[in-house]
Structure formats: structure tokens, C-alpha cells
Design a protein around this nucleic acid. Structure first.
Lengths: 151, 151
DNA sequence: AATGAAAACTAATCAGC
DNA sequence: GCTGATTAGTTTTCATT
């Protein structure tokens, strides 16, 4: 991965629908060269997908919550993660250091939906305790930051 | 926004580079109709952008952290958010209910980078206390979930 | 790895319904 | 708000360097 690859990645992080022709003009390469490079980045697992970003409220997701989980002593972290992945409302799942073992971000229609998720979590094998924090407002999400300097 | 719009949105959430022709075949409309609908969704602020998803580790982001912030009594939440937005390492910024007022997700190259961010946060006017939790592993992020039933 | 050229496909525009 | 036709632009493939 060279500087051109990183330039392509940043451009696609900012506009995931940029055409290869446009990207080629940006980095000073032909269309097919850009296609080659991006295919390689995709196959190498550097670019993992392309997503439209949407306004959750417009889609009917009225409530976002962060939920910390404590696990019971015997629980296997990996097994718990697999069970958590069945709960489609969980958009993000981080295994963390600290008192809680997982932090989740859930997106639901309303408080009733949140109640259902928290209840499901409490009933999930290996989960001993949940700690729910409601998001009052999202200032920003998934902002594109600068890439670290190269090694 | 009707059922076809929601179908288009879900398709674009899953593949943000789907062509309008392809989307048209999916929903049973012509290309121009799809273009129309998507333009309208973009202008209405329902679709807010398109992003390539990348593997943070491949780009040199070795450390992800969740950082809770307590604000000083006099602090104006909005002003603090503006100052926080200068810290490019903060990918997500949620104003939350509870003991902490903000929860941030930061992505940095290494622990040194994390130290720098936490130090900057501590020096930010209006921030009285930080609580940093290191992410040990990301099970998933930004997963596409089902849309809530219509009203 | 990159290029240019050709073929196939897609996007954008627009008149008509 | 959708369609079909037109034109312009893009993607893909491939022979060449």
C-alpha cells in the first residue's frame, strides 16, 4: 500500500460513490489502474464495503443507546458475541477493558424497542448485568479522520 | 417515503456503490425513476452520504477507545461539542444522559496517540473529567439493521 | 503495474404520458 | 411520478509496454 492507495482510500471514505474515472483524475492515473488498485484493496480486506449513510430519525429510529454488559464469571466472550449478533438492533459491538466486558450501540424505534433489547440482553446466556445510557443527541458519527503517518 | 424508497435505502446501506440500473432491476423501476427517487432522498437529508468502509488496522489505526466526558458546571454543551469537533481523532460524538455528558469514540495509531487525545480533552475548556475505556476487539461496527415498521 | 483503445454498460437529460 | 430514447460518460477487458 503506497501513498496513491491511501489517497484513493481517503477519497472513497469521503465519497464512496466516486467514479474510477474521477479518482483517476484525482491521483493522476488511468481508470483501469484505479480499478486494479481498488480491486486489490478490496481483496486484501482493506476496503471492506461501501455504505450509504442515512439519517436514523428519517428512517424511524428514534432512540440510540449505549449499553455496557457485564458477563457472568463462567461466560465465554466469543460465545456471548455470537449470541449478541442475533440482536439486529445492535449496530456496534466492542469488547472492552474495564468493569463492563462489552459496549454496544443499539438503534431502535422508541423506548419500547429499547426495553425489548435490554430485556433480550438480560436473558442472553453469559450476560449478568446491563447498563444502559440513552443518547440524547448525536453530534456526529463515523467522521472521516486523517490516516496515521506511514511506518 | 414509500416502501420502494425504503427498499432502495436498504440496498444502498448494504452496497453503497450499487448502480442505479441495478437498483432499478431490484425494485422494478427504470433507471431514471431510481435516480429521481435517490436524488429526492439525498435532498431531503435521508441519505446523507456514501462511505467506503475500511479496516482500521490496515490503515495504521491500532487503538480504538471510548471516552466518557464530564463537563464543568458552567459549561455550555454546544460550545464543548464545537471544540471537540476540532479533535479529528474523534470519529463519533454522542451527547448522553447520565453521569458523563459525552461519549466519544476515538481512533488513533497507538497508545501514544491515545495519550495525546486524552490530554487534549482534559485541556478542553468545559471538560472537567475524562474516563477512557480501551477497545480490546471490535466484534462489528455499523452493521445494517432492519428498518422499523412504518407508522 | 500502467497504458490506450474497444466494447459493454450506466448515468443524465428530456420530451411525452 | 414514470417511461423510453438519446447522448455523454464510465467500466471492463485486453493487448502492449
Amino acid at each position: 500500500m503506497d501513498a496513491v492507495d491511501r489517497q484513493l482510500i481517503q477519497a472513497l471514505r469521503e465519497n464512496g460513490r466516486a467514479s474510477y474515472a474521477e479518482l483517476g483524475r484525482l491521483v493522476g492515473l488511468s481508470g483501469p489502474s484505479v480499478t486494479d488498485r481498488i480491486n486489490r484493496l478490496e481483496q486484501a480486506g482493506v476496503i471492506t464495503g461501501y455504505r450509504a449513510e442515512v439519517d436514523p430519525a428519517s428512517l424511524g429510529f428514534g432512540v440510540t443507546a449505549l449499553i455496557g454488559l457485564q458477563l457472568s464469571d463462567a461466560a465465554d466472550h466469543e460465545e456471548v458475541a455470537v449470541r449478541l449478533s442475533d440482536l439486529r438492533e445492535i449496530e456496534d459491538c466492542w469488547f472492552i477493558a474495564g468493569e463492563d466486558s462489552y459496549m454496544l450501540k443499539a438503534r431502535v424505534a422508541d423506548v419500547d424497542g429499547l426495553e425489548a433489547v435490554v430485556r433480550s440482553l438480560s436473558l442472553t446466556k453469559g450476560v449478568s448485568r446491563t447498563r444502559t445510557t440513552v443518547v440524547l443527541s448525536t453530534k456526529w458519527e463515523n467522521r472521516v479522520n486523517e490516516l496515521p503517518e506511514e511506518d
